[in-house]
């Protein structure tokens, strides 16, 4: 059972996401971006950083990276581990994210937002919104991945 966050977990979710054609239609479809996932660890431990790569109709998985890699991604999503886990718990419970736990809601509700970038390039940052449903579909696919708690 993969643990969140880990390369294995992102790989397992990518396998579900890539294998379900429903995620390609109706507002989904081709997506080309590199998104960072930053999971802030409790007790001031260093954050876990992963780089999710979407190419065409596929997610190529999430590679572990260091903080410097965030300068190269189009945007990154950052939350404390507990908030990521709460989001994933909501997805597990309902099969998909509900009102307070969609990526859009999290970005609105959080004081610092969810998505941001190092470079500040608005065009690349806005890929978060252009591909929002694909990103949501990706995390929603985790409903079908048994996840071990970190």
């Amino acid at each position: 059972m993969p643990r969140f966050p880990s390369e294995q977990w992102f790989g397992a979710v990518a396998a579900v996401f890539n294998g379900d054609e429903r995620y390609q239609g109706a507002g989904g479809g081709q997506c080309n971006c590199r998104a960072g996932v930053v999971v802030e660890a409790p007790n001031d431990a260093p954050a876990d950083v992963f780089v999710l790569t979407f190419e065409g109709a596929e997610c190529l998985g999430g590679q572990p990276a260091d903080a410097a890699a965030l300068a190269d991604v189009d945007f990154y999503m950052q939350m404390p581990l507990a908030d990521w886990q709460e989001m994933l718990g909501d997805i597990q419970a309902h099969g998909h994210a509900t009102a307070d736990h969609t990526l859009n809601s999290l970005d609105l509700n959080r004081e610092e937002g969810l998505a941001t970038s190092v470079h500040g390039d608005q065009y690349r940052e806005d890929l978060f919104f252009r591909y929002n449903q694909t990103l949501q579909f990706f995390f929603d696919a985790s409903a079908r991945v048994k996840t071990a708690r970190a």
Binding site: A99, T102, N104, S105, N109, R130, N132, Q133
Partner: peptide, 27 residues
């Protein structure tokens, strides 16, 4: 984005979420 956040049902949530993607391209 606020309408998606406060949608009353899946249909509204679906519409607002897709329009957000379209509008993001316009922007």
């Amino acid at each position: 984005r606020y309408l998606e956040r406060f949608a009353h049902n899946d249909a509204e949530r679906y519409i607002y979420a897709r329009v957000i993607e379209d509008k993001a391209r316009h922007l």
